[in-house]
Design a protein around this nucleic acid. Structure first.
Lengths: 110, 110
DNA sequence: GTAGTCAATCGTAAAGATACGATAGAATTT
DNA sequence: AAATTCTATCGTATCTTTACGATTGACTAC
């Protein structure tokens, strides 16, 4: 197959997986970090900072836009990207509560 | 190509991406949630809870083990899985600080 | 020892992800 | 209008991921 069986999981589980995808490739992590630090927010600047082809960077930006965690503003002839605060805080809450459901003190099963 | 250029990114970025991979598939999210809630920690029980074949569940468990976020204990004839507290707290810290680097109040670039 | 149980691995098929060169589209500048 | 600039998309190659049936290996129970 090679295709995820989305329908057998909950909305929440699928959304967590999607949000995690934003961070599941080092290039996307780097892009998000650059957007946050503002060392770059124009596509061309990102291409200069990363050692990746323009088409590849554009593809990663598209994926981040699909997830909703970034948002691009056309500023001809450039496109300025920035973090979408709404989805970013969704990610904070989502990962925060997921990671907090496990208490370190709990012992392993056995 | 189809292969990630790991060498052009920092250790930290690659590790974040790897940790995120643990959560980037709904089946793995479901497995981690089941391990936490203890509704199941034996492979067979996970197979019963999820609508996935045994081989598929085993494959996801292998990936989670590779990342280090879970840990399996052989308890013949079963194998009992549990969260690895060390790596779990690493994930807490990692995502916590990454997600906190962006302050909601910051305005978008333009 | 034989049968049964459980989980890992093998083999395989299909789809997705990653990467890049080349091209196209949209806007500014000359 | 023509040239330039910037980014998105197309086409394509290659590798990875997801999924499952079948088999293997390890251990228990009889």
């Amino acid at each position: 197959m090679g295709v995820t069986k989305t329908e057998i999981f909950t909305e929440q589980q699928n959304r967590i997986a999607d949000l995690a995808k934003a961070f599941s490739h080092p290039a996307r992590v780097a892009i998000l970090q650059l957007l946050i630090s503002r060392k770059a927010c124009v596509c061309g600047d990102l291409v200069d900072e990363l050692e990746l082809a323009q088409a590849t960077v554009s593809q990663h930006l598209k994926e981040l836009k699909r997830i909703g965690i970034i948002h691009g503003e056309i500023n001809p002839p450039r496109v300025c990207y920035c973090i979408n605060p709404v989805v970013w805080s969704e990610a904070q809450k989502t990962f925060g509560s997921l990671l907090d459901t496990f208490a370190i003190t709990e012992s392993c099963c056995n």
